[in-house]
Design a protein around this nucleic acid. Structure first.
Lengths: 203, 203
DNA sequence: GCTCTAATTAGATAAGAATCGAATCGACCG
DNA sequence: CGGTCGATTCGATTCTTATCTAATTAGAGC
Protein backbone atom coordinates (compact mmCIF):
# COMPACT_ATOMS: atom_id res chain seq x y z
CA UNK A 1 0.00 0.00 0.00
CA UNK A 2 1.07 3.51 -0.72
CA UNK A 3 0.47 4.83 2.75
CA UNK A 4 2.99 2.51 4.31
CA UNK A 5 5.64 3.38 1.80
CA UNK A 6 5.19 7.04 2.39
CA UNK A 7 5.38 6.56 6.14
CA UNK A 8 8.39 4.28 5.92
CA UNK A 9 10.20 6.79 3.79
CA UNK A 10 9.62 9.59 6.25
CA UNK A 11 10.50 7.42 9.21
CA UNK A 12 13.84 6.73 7.64
CA UNK A 13 14.51 10.44 7.54
CA UNK A 14 13.00 11.19 10.93
CA UNK A 15 16.13 10.61 12.96
CA UNK A 16 19.00 13.07 13.41
CA UNK A 17 21.69 10.42 13.35
CA UNK A 18 20.48 9.07 10.05
CA UNK A 19 20.30 12.51 8.52
CA UNK A 20 23.83 13.25 9.65
CA UNK A 21 24.87 9.94 8.21
CA UNK A 22 23.45 10.92 4.85
CA UNK A 23 25.14 14.29 5.03
CA UNK A 24 28.47 12.62 5.64
CA UNK A 25 27.87 10.18 2.81
CA UNK A 26 27.02 12.98 0.43
CA UNK A 27 30.70 13.85 0.49
CA UNK A 28 31.70 10.39 -0.57
CA UNK A 29 31.54 6.80 0.54
CA UNK A 30 32.60 5.81 4.05
CA UNK A 31 32.90 2.54 5.90
CA UNK A 32 31.13 1.64 9.12
CA UNK A 33 33.99 2.28 11.52
CA UNK A 34 34.62 5.73 10.13
CA UNK A 35 30.97 6.63 10.26
CA UNK A 36 30.79 5.43 13.86
CA UNK A 37 33.71 7.59 14.82
CA UNK A 38 32.50 10.68 13.00
CA UNK A 39 29.05 10.39 14.53
CA UNK A 40 30.27 9.37 17.99
CA UNK A 41 28.27 6.19 18.13
CA UNK A 42 29.23 2.53 18.19
CA UNK A 43 29.51 0.38 15.06
CA UNK A 44 26.45 -1.51 16.23
CA UNK A 45 24.42 1.66 16.00
CA UNK A 46 25.65 2.29 12.49
CA UNK A 47 24.55 -1.17 11.46
CA UNK A 48 21.14 -0.45 12.94
CA UNK A 49 20.69 2.80 11.02
CA UNK A 50 22.19 1.44 7.84
CA UNK A 51 19.54 -1.25 7.84
CA UNK A 52 16.79 1.37 7.95
CA UNK A 53 18.34 3.54 5.30
CA UNK A 54 18.84 0.52 3.10
CA UNK A 55 15.22 -0.51 3.56
CA UNK A 56 14.20 2.90 2.27
CA UNK A 57 16.62 2.62 -0.67
CA UNK A 58 18.53 5.63 0.48
CA UNK A 59 21.98 4.10 0.60
CA UNK A 60 23.98 1.46 -1.16
CA UNK A 61 26.79 -0.76 0.02
CA UNK A 62 29.99 -1.96 -1.53
CA UNK A 63 32.23 -4.57 -0.02
CA UNK A 64 36.00 -4.40 -0.32
CA UNK A 65 37.76 -7.17 1.56
CA UNK A 66 36.47 -6.95 5.09
CA UNK A 67 35.26 -3.41 4.85
CA UNK A 68 31.82 -2.28 3.77
CA UNK A 69 31.60 1.11 2.19
CA UNK A 70 28.31 2.97 2.33
CA UNK A 71 27.25 5.59 -0.17
CA UNK A 72 24.11 7.43 -1.15
CA UNK A 73 21.88 5.51 -3.50
CA UNK A 74 22.10 7.02 -6.94
CA UNK A 75 18.35 7.09 -7.29
CA UNK A 76 18.11 8.99 -4.08
CA UNK A 77 20.67 11.51 -5.24
CA UNK A 78 18.83 12.11 -8.45
CA UNK A 79 15.34 12.15 -7.02
CA UNK A 80 13.78 15.52 -7.43
CA UNK A 81 10.76 14.60 -5.39
CA UNK A 82 12.72 14.37 -2.22
CA UNK A 83 13.99 17.85 -1.72
CA UNK A 84 15.81 16.40 1.22
CA UNK A 85 18.24 14.75 -1.08
CA UNK A 86 18.74 18.06 -2.70
CA UNK A 87 19.43 19.76 0.58
CA UNK A 88 21.82 17.11 1.70
CA UNK A 89 23.57 16.83 -1.58
CA UNK A 90 24.03 20.54 -1.93
CA UNK A 91 25.41 20.93 1.52
CA UNK A 92 28.01 18.30 0.78
CA UNK A 93 29.28 18.90 -2.69
CA UNK A 94 28.70 22.56 -3.19
CA UNK A 95 26.91 23.17 -6.40
CA UNK A 96 27.27 26.83 -7.31
CA UNK A 97 23.97 28.12 -8.67
CA UNK A 98 21.84 25.08 -9.14
CA UNK A 99 18.44 26.72 -8.67
CA UNK A 100 19.26 29.38 -11.21
CA UNK A 101 16.29 30.23 -13.40
CA UNK A 102 18.45 29.95 -16.47
CA UNK A 103 19.24 26.39 -15.57
CA UNK A 104 15.56 25.68 -15.18
CA UNK A 105 14.81 27.29 -18.48
CA UNK A 106 17.45 25.32 -20.31
CA UNK A 107 16.15 22.19 -18.65
CA UNK A 108 12.63 22.85 -19.79
CA UNK A 109 13.83 23.40 -23.34
CA UNK A 110 15.62 20.06 -23.29
CA UNK A 111 12.47 18.45 -22.09
CA UNK A 112 10.36 19.96 -24.81
CA UNK A 113 12.80 19.01 -27.52
CA UNK A 114 13.12 15.44 -26.32
CA UNK A 115 9.36 15.08 -26.30
CA UNK A 116 9.14 16.56 -29.76
CA UNK A 117 11.71 14.23 -31.22
CA UNK A 118 10.45 11.02 -29.68
CA UNK A 119 6.73 11.47 -29.99
CA UNK A 120 4.96 11.56 -33.34
CA UNK A 121 2.24 14.07 -34.11
CA UNK A 122 -0.45 11.50 -33.29
CA UNK A 123 0.98 11.15 -29.79
CA UNK A 124 2.60 7.77 -30.36
CA UNK A 125 6.13 7.05 -29.28
CA UNK A 126 8.47 6.71 -32.25
CA UNK A 127 11.05 4.76 -30.30
CA UNK A 128 12.18 4.17 -26.74
CA UNK A 129 15.18 6.36 -25.97
CA UNK A 130 18.34 4.50 -25.05
CA UNK A 131 19.85 7.39 -23.14
CA UNK A 132 18.72 7.45 -19.52
CA UNK A 133 17.87 11.12 -19.27
CA UNK A 134 15.79 11.06 -22.40
CA UNK A 135 14.12 7.86 -21.42
CA UNK A 136 13.02 9.32 -18.11
CA UNK A 137 11.57 12.37 -19.79
CA UNK A 138 9.56 10.16 -22.08
CA UNK A 139 8.39 7.85 -19.30
CA UNK A 140 7.35 10.74 -17.11
CA UNK A 141 5.39 12.24 -19.95
CA UNK A 142 3.39 9.06 -20.29
CA UNK A 143 2.99 8.44 -16.59
CA UNK A 144 1.40 11.86 -16.24
CA UNK A 145 -1.63 10.48 -18.04
CA UNK A 146 -2.27 7.96 -15.28
CA UNK A 147 -4.31 8.68 -12.19
CA UNK A 148 -2.58 8.69 -8.82
CA UNK A 149 -4.19 6.36 -6.35
CA UNK A 150 -6.10 4.40 -8.94
CA UNK A 151 -5.46 0.68 -9.25
CA UNK A 152 -4.87 -0.70 -12.73
CA UNK A 153 -5.14 -4.28 -13.88
CA UNK A 154 -2.37 -5.70 -16.03
CA UNK A 155 -4.51 -5.57 -19.13
CA UNK A 156 -5.43 -1.98 -18.51
CA UNK A 157 -1.79 -1.05 -18.23
CA UNK A 158 -0.97 -2.93 -21.41
CA UNK A 159 -3.76 -1.28 -23.34
CA UNK A 160 -2.71 2.09 -22.10
CA UNK A 161 0.88 1.49 -23.18
CA UNK A 162 -0.09 0.04 -26.55
CA UNK A 163 -1.44 3.43 -27.48
CA UNK A 164 2.09 4.70 -27.28
CA UNK A 165 4.17 1.83 -28.59
CA UNK A 166 3.84 -1.78 -29.68
CA UNK A 167 6.47 -2.95 -27.28
CA UNK A 168 4.29 -2.37 -24.25
CA UNK A 169 6.09 -5.05 -22.26
CA UNK A 170 9.32 -3.11 -22.30
CA UNK A 171 7.55 0.07 -21.35
CA UNK A 172 5.82 -1.66 -18.48
CA UNK A 173 9.11 -3.00 -17.22
CA UNK A 174 10.65 0.45 -17.44
CA UNK A 175 7.81 1.90 -15.44
CA UNK A 176 8.47 -0.53 -12.65
CA UNK A 177 12.23 -0.35 -12.86
CA UNK A 178 12.30 3.39 -12.60
CA UNK A 179 9.82 3.37 -9.77
CA UNK A 180 6.97 5.17 -11.45
CA UNK A 181 4.67 2.30 -10.64
CA UNK A 182 4.61 -0.73 -8.44
CA UNK A 183 2.88 -4.07 -8.82
CA UNK A 184 1.14 -6.11 -6.18
CA UNK A 185 -0.72 -9.29 -7.10
CA UNK A 186 -1.04 -8.21 -10.71
CA UNK A 187 -2.49 -4.89 -9.72
CA UNK A 188 -0.49 -1.89 -10.78
CA UNK A 189 -0.49 1.49 -9.11
CA UNK A 190 1.41 4.75 -9.38
CA UNK A 191 4.14 5.43 -6.86
CA UNK A 192 4.21 8.78 -5.10
CA UNK A 193 6.34 11.25 -7.03
CA UNK A 194 8.92 11.06 -4.28
CA UNK A 195 9.99 7.71 -5.59
CA UNK A 196 10.12 8.71 -9.21
CA UNK A 197 13.49 8.87 -10.73
CA UNK A 198 14.10 12.36 -11.81
CA UNK A 199 17.22 13.48 -13.46
CA UNK A 200 16.43 17.13 -13.38
CA UNK A 201 16.99 18.38 -9.88
CA UNK A 202 20.64 17.58 -9.62
CA UNK A 203 22.50 18.25 -12.80
CA UNK B 1 19.39 24.48 13.72
CA UNK B 2 18.51 23.14 10.33
CA UNK B 3 18.94 19.50 11.22
CA UNK B 4 16.22 19.56 13.82
CA UNK B 5 13.76 21.23 11.53
CA UNK B 6 14.35 18.67 8.85
CA UNK B 7 13.93 15.86 11.35
CA UNK B 8 10.81 17.40 12.86
CA UNK B 9 9.29 17.77 9.45
CA UNK B 10 9.86 14.12 8.62
CA UNK B 11 8.70 12.99 12.03
CA UNK B 12 5.45 14.79 11.45
CA UNK B 13 4.91 12.77 8.31
CA UNK B 14 6.20 9.51 9.74
CA UNK B 15 2.92 8.37 11.21
CA UNK B 16 0.07 6.72 9.31
CA UNK B 17 -2.65 8.43 11.32
CA UNK B 18 -1.22 11.85 10.57
CA UNK B 19 -0.89 11.10 6.88
CA UNK B 20 -4.47 9.91 6.76
CA UNK B 21 -5.46 13.07 8.56
CA UNK B 22 -3.79 15.15 5.90
CA UNK B 23 -5.44 13.15 3.17
CA UNK B 24 -8.84 13.78 4.72
CA UNK B 25 -8.06 17.46 5.09
CA UNK B 26 -7.02 17.72 1.47
CA UNK B 27 -10.69 17.36 0.62
CA UNK B 28 -11.65 20.28 2.77
CA UNK B 29 -11.60 21.48 6.35
CA UNK B 30 -12.90 19.27 9.13
CA UNK B 31 -13.38 19.70 12.85
CA UNK B 32 -11.86 17.52 15.55
CA UNK B 33 -14.88 15.36 16.26
CA UNK B 34 -15.39 14.50 12.63
CA UNK B 35 -11.73 13.68 12.16
CA UNK B 36 -11.82 11.47 15.23
CA UNK B 37 -14.77 9.58 13.90
CA UNK B 38 -13.41 9.19 10.39
CA UNK B 39 -10.10 7.93 11.67
CA UNK B 40 -11.57 5.80 14.45
CA UNK B 41 -9.62 7.42 17.22
CA UNK B 42 -10.62 9.57 20.17
CA UNK B 43 -10.71 13.36 20.05
CA UNK B 44 -7.76 13.39 22.43
CA UNK B 45 -5.68 11.59 19.85
CA UNK B 46 -6.64 14.13 17.23
CA UNK B 47 -5.49 16.92 19.49
CA UNK B 48 -2.21 15.12 19.95
CA UNK B 49 -1.58 14.74 16.22
CA UNK B 50 -2.85 18.19 15.40
CA UNK B 51 -0.22 19.62 17.71
CA UNK B 52 2.54 17.86 15.78
CA UNK B 53 1.20 18.82 12.41
CA UNK B 54 0.83 22.39 13.56
CA UNK B 55 4.40 22.44 14.84
CA UNK B 56 5.55 21.43 11.39
CA UNK B 57 3.33 24.08 9.80
CA UNK B 58 1.38 21.50 7.91
CA UNK B 59 -2.09 22.48 9.06
CA UNK B 60 -3.97 25.57 10.11
CA UNK B 61 -6.89 26.05 12.44
CA UNK B 62 -9.97 28.17 12.37
CA UNK B 63 -12.32 28.60 15.26
CA UNK B 64 -16.05 28.96 14.78
CA UNK B 65 -17.95 29.15 18.05
CA UNK B 66 -16.95 26.06 19.95
CA UNK B 67 -15.70 24.15 17.00
CA UNK B 68 -12.19 24.18 15.60
CA UNK B 69 -11.82 23.47 11.93
CA UNK B 70 -8.55 22.09 10.67
CA UNK B 71 -7.29 22.52 7.15
CA UNK B 72 -4.09 22.04 5.22
CA UNK B 73 -1.72 24.95 5.55
CA UNK B 74 -1.73 26.84 2.30
CA UNK B 75 2.03 27.00 2.30
CA UNK B 76 2.15 23.27 2.64
CA UNK B 77 -0.21 22.79 -0.24
CA UNK B 78 1.86 25.00 -2.44
CA UNK B 79 5.24 23.67 -1.41
CA UNK B 80 7.03 22.08 -4.28
CA UNK B 81 9.81 20.82 -2.05
CA UNK B 82 7.55 18.41 -0.28
CA UNK B 83 6.34 16.12 -3.00
CA UNK B 84 4.31 14.54 -0.26
CA UNK B 85 1.98 17.46 -0.28
CA UNK B 86 1.62 16.97 -3.95
CA UNK B 87 0.79 13.32 -3.56
CA UNK B 88 -1.74 13.93 -0.85
CA UNK B 89 -3.33 16.82 -2.55
CA UNK B 90 -3.68 15.02 -5.84
CA UNK B 91 -5.22 12.01 -4.26
CA UNK B 92 -7.88 14.13 -2.66
CA UNK B 93 -8.95 16.72 -5.15
CA UNK B 94 -8.18 15.06 -8.42
CA UNK B 95 -6.26 17.40 -10.63
CA UNK B 96 -6.39 16.12 -14.17
CA UNK B 97 -3.03 16.59 -15.80
CA UNK B 98 -0.99 18.56 -13.37
CA UNK B 99 2.47 17.25 -14.30
CA UNK B 100 1.84 17.98 -17.93
CA UNK B 101 4.95 19.28 -19.70
CA UNK B 102 2.92 22.09 -21.20
CA UNK B 103 2.03 23.29 -17.76
CA UNK B 104 5.66 23.20 -16.78
CA UNK B 105 6.63 25.07 -19.86
CA UNK B 106 4.07 27.78 -19.33
CA UNK B 107 5.19 28.04 -15.73
CA UNK B 108 8.78 28.50 -16.74
CA UNK B 109 7.81 31.21 -19.17
CA UNK B 110 5.96 33.06 -16.46
CA UNK B 111 8.99 32.83 -14.29
CA UNK B 112 11.31 34.18 -16.92
CA UNK B 113 9.02 37.07 -17.73
CA UNK B 114 8.57 38.02 -14.10
CA UNK B 115 12.31 38.08 -13.60
CA UNK B 116 12.76 40.12 -16.73
CA UNK B 117 10.25 42.71 -15.69
CA UNK B 118 11.36 43.15 -12.10
CA UNK B 119 15.10 43.02 -12.47
CA UNK B 120 17.07 45.70 -14.29
CA UNK B 121 19.87 44.86 -16.68
CA UNK B 122 22.44 45.49 -13.94
CA UNK B 123 20.80 42.82 -11.82
CA UNK B 124 19.16 45.20 -9.36
CA UNK B 125 15.55 44.84 -8.36
CA UNK B 126 13.40 47.59 -9.81
CA UNK B 127 10.66 47.14 -7.23
CA UNK B 128 9.32 44.54 -4.86
CA UNK B 129 6.32 42.81 -6.42
CA UNK B 130 3.08 43.18 -4.52
CA UNK B 131 1.52 40.07 -5.97
CA UNK B 132 2.43 36.96 -4.00
CA UNK B 133 3.33 34.71 -6.88
CA UNK B 134 5.59 37.26 -8.43
CA UNK B 135 7.15 38.14 -5.14
CA UNK B 136 8.06 34.53 -4.51
CA UNK B 137 9.68 34.21 -7.90
CA UNK B 138 11.77 37.26 -7.19
CA UNK B 139 12.72 36.14 -3.69
CA UNK B 140 13.69 32.71 -4.87
CA UNK B 141 15.85 34.19 -7.56
CA UNK B 142 17.81 36.14 -4.97
CA UNK B 143 17.97 33.37 -2.43
CA UNK B 144 19.61 31.13 -5.01
CA UNK B 145 22.70 33.28 -4.69
CA UNK B 146 23.15 32.35 -1.05
CA UNK B 147 25.02 29.30 0.12
CA UNK B 148 23.09 26.54 1.85
CA UNK B 149 24.48 25.69 5.24
CA UNK B 150 26.53 28.85 5.56
CA UNK B 151 25.83 31.18 8.47
CA UNK B 152 25.42 34.85 7.71
CA UNK B 153 25.69 37.77 10.09
CA UNK B 154 23.00 40.44 9.97
CA UNK B 155 25.32 42.89 8.27
CA UNK B 156 26.27 40.36 5.66
CA UNK B 157 22.65 39.74 4.85
CA UNK B 158 21.99 43.47 4.66
CA UNK B 159 24.93 44.08 2.35
CA UNK B 160 23.86 41.22 0.16
CA UNK B 161 20.34 42.58 -0.11
CA UNK B 162 21.46 46.17 -0.70
CA UNK B 163 22.93 45.04 -3.97
CA UNK B 164 19.41 44.30 -5.09
CA UNK B 165 17.38 47.06 -3.50
CA UNK B 166 17.70 49.94 -1.09
CA UNK B 167 14.92 48.67 1.08
CA UNK B 168 16.92 45.74 2.36
CA UNK B 169 14.95 45.61 5.61
CA UNK B 170 11.77 44.71 3.80
CA UNK B 171 13.54 42.12 1.73
CA UNK B 172 15.05 40.59 4.84
CA UNK B 173 11.68 40.39 6.49
CA UNK B 174 10.22 38.75 3.40
CA UNK B 175 12.98 36.16 3.42
CA UNK B 176 12.10 35.19 6.94
CA UNK B 177 8.38 35.43 6.49
CA UNK B 178 8.34 33.17 3.49
CA UNK B 179 10.65 30.70 5.18
CA UNK B 180 13.62 31.01 2.88
CA UNK B 181 15.82 31.82 5.84
CA UNK B 182 15.68 31.64 9.58
CA UNK B 183 17.38 33.70 12.26
CA UNK B 184 18.91 32.56 15.50
CA UNK B 185 20.75 35.00 17.75
CA UNK B 186 21.30 37.43 14.90
CA UNK B 187 22.77 34.72 12.73
CA UNK B 188 20.89 34.03 9.53
CA UNK B 189 20.86 30.80 7.62
CA UNK B 190 19.06 29.32 4.64
CA UNK B 191 16.21 26.96 5.29
CA UNK B 192 16.07 23.65 3.42
CA UNK B 193 14.14 23.98 0.17
CA UNK B 194 11.39 21.89 1.70
CA UNK B 195 10.33 24.85 3.72
CA UNK B 196 10.46 27.34 0.92
CA UNK B 197 7.19 28.64 -0.21
CA UNK B 198 6.68 27.59 -3.76
CA UNK B 199 3.66 28.39 -5.75
CA UNK B 200 4.60 26.36 -8.76
CA UNK B 201 3.88 22.75 -7.98
CA UNK B 202 0.18 23.08 -7.48
CA UNK B 203 -1.29 25.57 -9.83
C1' DG C 1 -26.06 30.45 36.63
C1' DC C 2 -26.69 25.87 34.43
C1' DT C 3 -26.02 22.71 30.69
C1' DC C 4 -24.42 21.12 26.45
C1' DT C 5 -20.75 20.32 23.27
C1' DA C 6 -16.11 20.48 21.55
C1' DA C 7 -11.42 20.62 22.63
C1' DT C 8 -7.64 20.18 25.59
C1' DT C 9 -4.90 18.44 29.43
C1' DA C 10 -3.17 14.93 32.49
C1' DG C 11 -1.95 10.50 33.66
C1' DA C 12 -1.40 5.69 32.46
C1' DT C 13 -0.15 2.04 29.38
C1' DA C 14 1.97 -0.18 25.86
C1' DA C 15 4.48 -0.45 21.75
C1' DG C 16 8.51 1.21 19.18
C1' DA C 17 13.01 2.71 18.50
C1' DA C 18 17.90 4.34 19.63
C1' DT C 19 21.80 3.05 21.82
C1' DC C 20 25.22 0.33 24.06
C1' DG C 21 28.29 -3.67 25.48
C1' DA C 22 29.32 -8.26 24.68
C1' DA C 23 29.28 -12.20 21.92
C1' DT C 24 29.56 -13.91 17.24
C1' DC C 25 30.45 -14.22 12.43
C1' DG C 26 33.34 -13.87 8.22
C1' DA C 27 36.95 -12.84 5.54
C1' DC C 28 41.63 -11.81 5.15
C1' DC C 29 46.64 -12.43 6.18
C1' DG C 30 50.73 -13.96 8.23
C1' DC D 1 45.84 -22.77 11.55
C1' DG D 2 45.32 -18.87 14.54
C1' DG D 3 44.93 -14.07 15.02
C1' DT D 4 42.93 -9.78 13.63
C1' DC D 5 39.72 -6.53 12.05
C1' DG D 6 35.34 -4.98 10.52
C1' DA D 7 30.54 -5.85 10.63
C1' DT D 8 26.53 -7.97 12.51
C1' DT D 9 23.51 -10.03 15.99
C1' DC D 10 21.59 -10.28 20.64
C1' DG D 11 19.87 -8.73 24.87
C1' DA D 12 19.21 -5.09 28.02
C1' DT D 13 18.24 -0.33 28.92
C1' DT D 14 16.25 3.91 28.29
C1' DC D 15 13.54 7.34 25.67
C1' DT D 16 10.06 8.38 22.80
C1' DT D 17 5.50 8.21 21.13
C1' DA D 18 0.65 6.68 20.06
C1' DT D 19 -3.35 5.86 22.28
C1' DC D 20 -6.78 5.60 25.71
C1' DT D 21 -9.77 7.18 29.81
C1' DA D 22 -11.03 10.55 32.86
C1' DA D 23 -10.95 15.16 34.33
C1' DT D 24 -10.88 19.95 32.93
C1' DT D 25 -11.41 24.08 30.27
C1' DA D 26 -13.88 27.22 26.97
C1' DG D 27 -17.70 28.90 24.76
C1' DA D 28 -22.71 29.17 23.36
C1' DG D 29 -27.25 29.19 24.22
C1' DC D 30 -30.99 28.81 27.32
Amino acid sequence: MQLEKLVAYHKALADPTRIRMLILLSEGELNGQTLAQRLSVTPATITHHAAKLRAASLIRERRDKNTIYFSLDEYFIRTGGAATADTIYRRGADSPGEADPEVLERREKTRASVLKSFFAADGRLKSIPAQLKKKLIVLEHMVARLEPGRRYGEKEVNDFLKEFHDDYATLRREFIMHQYMFREHDVYELNPPELWERWETLK
